Simulated assay, not measured.
Amino acid sequence: MRKLIGASLIAMMVAIPAAMAQNATPAGTWKTIDDETGKPKSLVRITDEGGVLTGKIEKLFRPADQDQNPKCTACEGARKDQPLIGMTILSGLKKDGNEYTGGEIMDPAKGKTYKSKAQLKDNGSKLEVRGYIGAPMFGRSQTWVREQ
């Protein structure tokens, strides 16, 4: 009987993390990490609206002597000179197997929009976000860290 209980507990300990990873979603708050400096840049809240992911800037990590809510001077169109906090920078991502594809990501520093895809890593604690032009091989990736 003890062997049966022990085996059941082990099976549950293995199954629960696997089930959690399988059901993990990018919805939540993420700390964006600059791929060039390795430093935190912002907090982005990702929401899932009918299976489509959208991400908005909630907070910026900037030195105290800089504007804490700068405007997107490099942006064009409706985003031109709009505050970065509250701006949608990620949109249109849909689940495709173990990835989220078909979206766009905007780089406020350059004011440019790129095609995007994302994939959860490390049991949902990290999100690898890739922005690219044309094909995914022509772009760059950032690893965002889930805020607890």
Rank of each mutant, 00 (worst) to 15 (best):
G103W: 07
T73P: 05
T54I: 14
G103H: 11
I85D: 04
K41R: 07
P63S: 13
R79L: 15
I105G: 03
D67M: 11
L60P: 02
I33T: 03
D48A: 04
K80A: 05
L9N: 03
Y100G: 09
D35G: 03
I5R: 13
G97T: 06
A64K: 11
K126L: 13
P70K: 03
T54P: 06
K39T: 00
Y114F: 12
K126S: 09
G77D: 06
C75D: 01
D107C: 06
V14N: 05
T88A: 11
K95S: 03
M87L: 13
P40Y: 07
K121F: 08
G134C: 03
S42C: 00
R146Y: 09
L93S: 06
R130C: 02
M1C: 09
E99V: 07
A135W: 06
L84V: 10
E99W: 10
M13N: 15
A64I: 12
A27K: 13
E104W: 00
L127G: 00
M13Q: 14
I10L: 15
S116Y: 02
N23L: 12
S141R: 05
I57H: 01
K121A: 13
T73D: 12
A24G: 13
G139T: 04
K112A: 08
Q22T: 14
R79D: 15
E104Q: 14
F138V: 04
N69T: 00
Y114T: 09
K71Y: 00
L93A: 05
M87P: 05
F61N: 11
I133F: 00
R79V: 10
P63H: 11
P136C: 10
E128R: 15
C72S: 13
S8D: 04
A118R: 02
W30A: 00
P63L: 10
P108R: 02
A19E: 08
A64Y: 07
K115W: 01
Y100D: 08
L43W: 05
V44M: 12
E104G: 13
L4T: 15
I133V: 09
D107N: 14
I57A: 02
M1W: 13
D107W: 10
D34S: 10
K94C: 01
G86W: 08
P108A: 11
M106Y: 09
A24R: 10
K56D: 07
T25V: 10
M137F: 08
Q119S: 13
R45E: 13
N98A: 03
S8Q: 01
T29H: 07
L53W: 01
E147K: 15
M87I: 05
